[in-house]
Amino acid sequence: MKYLVLLFLATTMVSCLSTDDTAPIIVEPIDYTAINEEEINAYLTANELESETTTSGLHYIIENQGEGEKPTASSNVTVAYRGYFLDGSVFDQSTDGLSIGLDQVIAGWTEGIQLFNEGGSGVLLIPAHLGYGSFDFNGIPGGSVLVFDIELLSVN
């Protein structure tokens, strides 16, 4: 019994030791705001597009304002969309429409979809800080500008 107690104490003492090798590695996020702004402006110039910009840095182009109801940040909406990177590579799309709450999506969508009325369509150019940030997420590289062609089908 005496040996079991000593073994227990020795195990406890060894397991409580900390070394620099076990310290968590903290990766600081990168601020892509200025880089994304340059990338968006280059994209707009190359494609001969003009956008409006919100105070948060979201760029948007309203092709058709629409005439129906305007959603709020907590609305559930149905949106047909195509999401792609500045190089044109498509990463997601829904031509039939996706029904989702605007409080359940990236900040760029929450803000951007509210700029349209039901039936409206246009383009959202979303910098990383309003998208998925500076870390990779489900196949989307950290720091990416996201472009969405959207059509607000309905405010549910």
Rank of each mutant, 00 (worst) to 15 (best):
V27G: 05
T45K: 07
I35M: 05
A23E: 13
D20Y: 05
N36K: 01
T12S: 08
E48V: 05
T11V: 12
E28K: 10
D21G: 00
T33Y: 07
E52M: 13
E38N: 09
I30L: 11
S15T: 13
D31G: 04
E38R: 01
G57E: 08
P24G: 12
E39I: 01
M13V: 15
I30A: 10
A46L: 03
P29D: 15
N41C: 02
A23I: 04
L6C: 05
L7Q: 02
A34H: 04
T53I: 08
V14M: 14
A42C: 06
L44G: 07
L6Q: 12
I40G: 09
L4K: 05
C16V: 10
T53A: 09
L49D: 09
L49V: 10
D20F: 07
S56Y: 03
A10C: 07
E52G: 04
I25D: 10
Y43V: 06
N41Y: 03
L9D: 05
I40E: 03
T11W: 02
E50T: 13
V5D: 02
A42W: 01
T12R: 01
A23V: 11
L6I: 13
E39V: 00
I26T: 11
D31Q: 03
M13N: 10
V5I: 06
A23Q: 13
E37D: 12
T11R: 03
A42F: 00
L7R: 01
F8C: 14
A23D: 10
Y43W: 13
F8P: 00
T53L: 04
N36Q: 05
L44S: 06
I30T: 14
T12L: 15
T33F: 11
M13Q: 08
T19D: 15
E38W: 00
P24T: 13
P29W: 08
S15D: 12
T54W: 00
T11E: 06
L7N: 02
M13W: 10
E38P: 01
T45L: 07
L49H: 03
